[in-house]
Nucleic acid binder design. Structure first.
Lengths: 141, 141
DNA sequence: CTCTTATTGCAAATCATTTGCATTTATATT
DNA sequence: AATATAAATGCAAATGATTTGCAATAAGAG
């Protein structure tokens, strides 16, 4: 999933490639494996000497989400986003300090499905999130 | 976990048993296995012909959380709460329609821990949430 | 019964996110 | 390359969930 892939998916879906959209995509690509908050994103934009209105950021996050280009997790009060790197069903291992995420495919779906059935539920979907400290962060907590 | 258990835990922690706190606890006990939003809670209170200020509800949710009496999950924009019924580490299977939850203890911690290590992470905690439709809701979607 | 301190209700503040609208811009079309 | 049109932007204001300050009230210890 590189810049051109993202661009062509957006174009295919009828979205325009605006200057602000490109900036946002660039940030996600450069921080490929980090979960970013909207605040983080705005800071990265500012680092480039630019500024996008928050509404523009939010609207573009929705655009990327709609094109299935993002992974999203909830963190306390706000959401965190990263570029989707895996097409398959997967979950994340997330560093509690820096937000760095690793995707993994392990998912005991059969067991989940069985648990649901045993309780009279129809199983539809699962969410697994693992938390810990990454390589770098575990050394300086 | 019955009324007296909750009362004695709160008392032990230095909290007073106010009329409004009792009402809230009563609702959680009667809806023992449902995840309730703050809005749901307020409606239940109104059903009893009473009214509690939202700030009172929020403050008391914090009190119950601090005493480790609640399970909390995030739902889109708001939080959902239910009385904790299991002391052990557990996760939930939640009905997407009515919010009814079942707790289960299954958790492949060893595998999670291994995945973390393989990626250079120190593993600290996990979250599993299963979603589906309960007995009642699956028949009338 | 009284005193102390926690708790409440209210109003206002806060924080994340969304929306209306006039203006601007990307891009398909001439 | 110039133009038309629909989408996207920035701004300001709205929204919705949650929090906070404060004066008034009530729980419960003595």
């Amino acid at each position: 999933m590189n810049l051109d892939d993202v661009y062509s998916i957006l174009t295919k879906n009828g979205y325009k490639l605006t200057r602000q959209r490109k900036v946002l995509i660039d940030i996600f690509i450069k921080q490929r494996n980090l979960f970013l908050s909207v605040e983080d994103i705005q800071k990265e934009i500012n680092k480039k000497g630019m500024n996008l209105d928050l509404s523009t950021i939010y609207r573009n996050l929705t655009v990327l989400e709609n094109s299935n280009l993002l992974c999203k997790i909830q963190n306390y009060n706000s959401n965190l986003y990263k570029l989707r790197t895996m097409k398959k069903h997967h979950h994340h291992l997330i560093c509690k300090k820096c937000g760095k995420a690793v995707s993994f495919e392990y998912c005991p779906t059969d067991t989940f499905s069985r648990i649901a059935e045993e309780n009279g539920y129809t199983f539809t979907d699962d969410k697994i999130e693992l938390y810990g400290y990454c390589n770098k962060c575990k050394n300086n907590l």
